[in-house]
Design a protein around this nucleic acid. Structure first.
Length: 447
RNA sequence: AGCCUCAUAGUGUAAUGGUAACACCGCAGAUUUUGAUUCUGUUAUUCAAGGUUCGAGCCCUUGUGAGGCUACCA
C-alpha cells in the first residue's frame, strides 16, 4: 500500500516504550477483551489493531496479546458470538497463539477476592432494592447516603454471601457491594455492586454459579491474573479507573496492570452501536450479522473489503483521546487503494445495448487478449471472446453527445477495450425512443 | 448542576518551547485501451482572552465548546 505510515508513536505506545526503557516492565502484555454478546464491527478493529499491534511491535521482548472473552453476564452471551469473534480476529490477520482466555474461568478467583474484601471490611451484602440503592446513591450534585446494611458485621456478610452463592436467594434479593465512598464526586466510587444473583445458565460454566461478578470488579482482576501490563480501553471507562485501581490495590492480585483509555472509532454515516446492530439483526431489517450493509467485520468481509485495508485504515486513524468522527471516505480510500494494487481486473456490462460490427468478417478474431492488471504485467493476461456482436453499457452511447462526452455517438470513434477502434455507423430505436441496436464498423489494423 | 477528559485545514493525525505539516476529501490541469490508476498544481488550520518567555499549537489562569459519568450492562 502507498504510504507506510509514519512510525510516530501514539501516546499509548509512548508510555509502553517508556516502561520498557525504564525497566518497569521487561515486556508488554496487552489483551483484546470482547464480551461475546454480538459480532465485532469496524470499531473493534481499532482496538484489535492497537492491542495486537503493540504485541507484534514488541515481539522481540516476548510481548503478547491475549484474546479474552469477558463473559460475566450469562444473559447476553452466546457461544455463536465466541466463534464469530475468533474468526473475525483471524480474518484481520492477528493470532493470539495459545493465549485464549475466558473471564468465566476465573469465577472462583473473583469469588475468593470478594470474600477477601468482606473479611477486610471493604465489602458488604446489601439488601435494599435496586431502586432504594439508586435513590441512596444520590446523583451528580447530591451526595449519597449510607445503606442501613453498610456497617453490618463481617461475619453476617460472609454468611449472607455464602448463601447467595448457594442459591438461597432470588434474583434482586441482595447484592454484594464494595465499601468505598458514598460522597465521592465520582459516582463509580459510591459503593459499587460487585456481585449480583442471576439464576441463568452460562454458556461456559453452565449452572455452576448463580452469582456473577460485574465488569468493574472482574475486569481488573482478569487483567492482573493474566499479568496484563497495559490494559487499553475506550474513553467511557476513564471515570472507572479509580475503581479499577482500588480493586487492584485491595485484592490479592499477582500483578498490577495499568488501565489507559483511548477514543473509540466513530465513522460518519455508520451505525456502530452494538445495541442498534443487534436490533437490526433481530428485527430482520438485515439478512444477518454479515449483511454487507452492516459495518460488522463479517459484513465488510462479505462486502469485499480486504482485511489489509481495514488494518491500514486503523493505523492511519491513529490513537488519541480526542473523540471525533472519522469521515468514512478515509476508510473507502484504503479499500480502493489496496484493491487497486491487488485486484485482477474484470469487465461487466450492467445495462447492455447490442453493437453490431457490420464489417466484422474483414478481420475476424475469436478473442482478444487483455491484461489482468494495467500496472502489473506479472498478473498476466486473459482472453475475452469477441464476435460481430458486442454489448456496451447503455450510458456509453449518446445520440446527441454533450460537451465532455468522450464515448460513442453517431459517426464517432471509440476503442473497444482489448479490441479495435470502431466507428458508429448508425442505430435503431424502438417506439419509446430507446436505443435497441447500434451499428458500427471496425477500423482494420487498429487492434 | 458536580466530577473526569478533550480541543491543530471539511475529516483524521503530526510538529525536544524555535519556519504549522502529512493523508483523505475538494478544486484545476496532464497522461490514460477502466471518465480508474498515475502525475502536476491548488484552496484552507492552532476555540477565545489574558499571563510566563527573546520566542507558545505546546507551559499557567480564566472562559467557551464537545464527549463521558447518576445499570444488579460491558
Amino acid at each position: 500500500m502507498s504510504d507506510p505510515i509514519t512510525p510516530k508513536l501514539d501516546f499509548i505506545r509512548e508510555i509502553i516504550s517508556a516502561d520498557l526503557a525504564s525497566g518497569k516492565h521487561a515486556t508488554t502484555i496487552t489483551r483484546f477483551p470482547p464480551e461475546p454478546n454480538g459480532y465485532l464491527h469496524i470499531g473493534h478493529a481499532k482496538a484489535i489493531c492497537l492491542n495486537f499491534g503493540i504485541a507484534a511491535e514488541n515481539a522481540a521482548t516476548g510481548a503478547k496479546c491475549h484474546l479474552r472473552f469477558d463473559d460475566t453476564n450469562p444473559e447476553k452471551e452466546e457461544s455463536e458470538y465466541v466463534e464469530s469473534i475468533k474468526a473475525d480476529v483471524k480474518w484481520l490477520g492477528f493470532d493470539w497463539g495459545s493465549d485464549l482466555y475466558f473471564a468465566s474461568d476465573y469465577f472462583t478467583f473473583f469469588h475468593d477476592c470478594a470474600v477477601h474484601l468482606i473479611k477486610q471490611g471493604k465489602a458488604y451484602v446489601e439488601q435494599q432494592s435496586a431502586e432504594e440503592m439508586r435513590t441512596n446513591r444520590g446523583n451528580l450534585t447530591t451526595l449519597g447516603t449510607p445503606s442501613p446494611f453498610r456497617d453490618r458485621p463481617e461475619e453476617e456478610s460472609l454468611d449472607l454471601f455464602a448463601r447467595m452463592k448457594a442459591g438461597e436467594f432470588k434474583e434482586g434479593d441482595c447484592v454484594l457491594r464494595a465499601k468505598i465512598d458514598l460522597t465521592s464526586p465520582n459516582m463509580n466510587l459510591r459503593d459499587p455492586v460487585l456481585y449480583r444473583i442471576m439464576h441463568a445458565e452460562h454458556h461456559n460454566t453452565g449452572n455452576a454459579w448463580c452469582i456473577y461478578p460485574l465488569y468493574d470488579f472482574a475486569h481488573p482482576l482478569e487483567d492482573a491474573l493474566e499479568h496484563i501490563t497495559h490494559s487499553l480501553c475506550t474513553l467511557e471507562f476513564e471515570n472507572h479507573r479509580p475503581l479499577y485501581d482500588w480493586f487492584i490495590d485491595n485484592c490479592p492480585v499477582p500483578s498490577k496492570p495499568r488501565q489507559i483509555e483511548f477514543a473509540r472509532l466513530g465513522l460518519t454515516y455508520t451505525v456502530m452501536s452494538k445495541r442498534k446492530l443487534l436490533q437490526l439483526v433481530q428485527e430482520g431489517h438485515v439478512s444477518g450479522w454479515n449483511d454487507p450493509r452492516l459495518p460488522t467485520l463479517s459484513g465488510l468481509r462479505r462486502r469485499g473489503y480486504p482485511p489489509e485495508a481495514v488494518v491500514h485504515f486503523c493505523k492511519r486513524v491513529g490513537i488519541t483521546k480526542f473523540s471525533g468522527t472519522t469521515d468514512v471516505a478515509l476508510l473507502e480510500f484504503d479499500v480502493r487503494d489496496f484493491l487497486n494494487t491487488s485486484a485482477p481486473r474484470r469487465m461487466a456490462v450492467l445495462d447492455p445495448v447490442k453493437v453490431v460490427l457490420e464489417n466484422w468478417s474483414t478481420e475476424p478474431h475469436a478473442s482478444v487478449e487483455v491484461p489482468n492488471h494495467p500496472q502489473n504485467p506479472e498478473a498476466g493476461n486473459r482472453d475475452i471472446p469477441i464476435s460481430h456482436e458486442v454489448w456496451i453499457e447503455r450510458e456509453d452511447f449518446m445520440e446527441i453527445p454533450e460537451k465532455k462526452f468522450h464515448r460513442l455517438g453517431p459517426d464517432r470513434h471509440v476503442r473497444l477495450k482489448g479490441g479495435h477502434i470502431i466507428r458508429c455507423t448508425g442505430f435503431e430505436k424502438d417506439a419509446d425512443g430507446n436505443i435497441t441496436i447500434i451499428r458500427a464498423e471496425i477500423l482494420p489494423g487498429t487492434i
